[in-house]
Amino acid sequence: MVNSKIAISTAAMIAIAAAWSGPASATGLSSNIVAEVAVETSAANVIQSMADQAMNELTDQSLADDVRRKKFVSLMDRYFAMDVVSRFVLGRYWRSISEAEIEEFSVLLQNYLALNYANQFKEFNGEQFVVGDETQKNKDTFVDSQFVRPDGPPVNIVWRMRMFDDSYKIIDVSIEGLSMGITQRDEFTSVIQQNNDDVGALTAALKAKTGL
């Protein structure tokens, strides 16, 4: 949750900077500040800044694969509610392991996802990421976005976000209507079930995949 504090203080600094620059017209200014803060904390803006950061840090082709994966993991740390995601993909089995084991699993999960997805940024060439509208449904905000490719139709990506301590965190990603969280949960719980409800079997498989 350290990261969310940083995000909040960034917003505060922008607000203060805005206040500093024009102490003359007090009435017009206050609405300005509100607008600045609102823009900074909207769910769509969080996705935009994550995308900007990913494009900046991950697409450099000279980057070594393991460095790219590390950067991918730290992006997830910042923008995803990993404690929620880790429990979600374990389904009801999260109860059967200790807090320390969940922590270990969370690290494995991040490295596993980095292994599967980080390299996709290496081949970026002319693609664009466009953030669209956001919709509120129950407790969550869904941010629409499109991955526009030079060859082939655009890919629709929806980010499911929830507010934790005044900042939006990603809890699920859907690509063309297919939820990555649900797919991962269904797969992981199947692995656990196939091994007599032993979460250790899943952890071992993840270790083998990631080499951790």
Binding site: V85, R87, F88, G91, N138, K139, R162, I171, R185
Partner: peptide, 16 residues
């Protein structure tokens, strides 16, 4: 998914 799945996002948030 929120209402009827055996384990949904709300459960995960609560668990975390």
């Amino acid at each position: 998914e929120d209402e009827s799945a055996s384990f949904d996002f709300d459960d995960a948030v609560e668990a975390a």
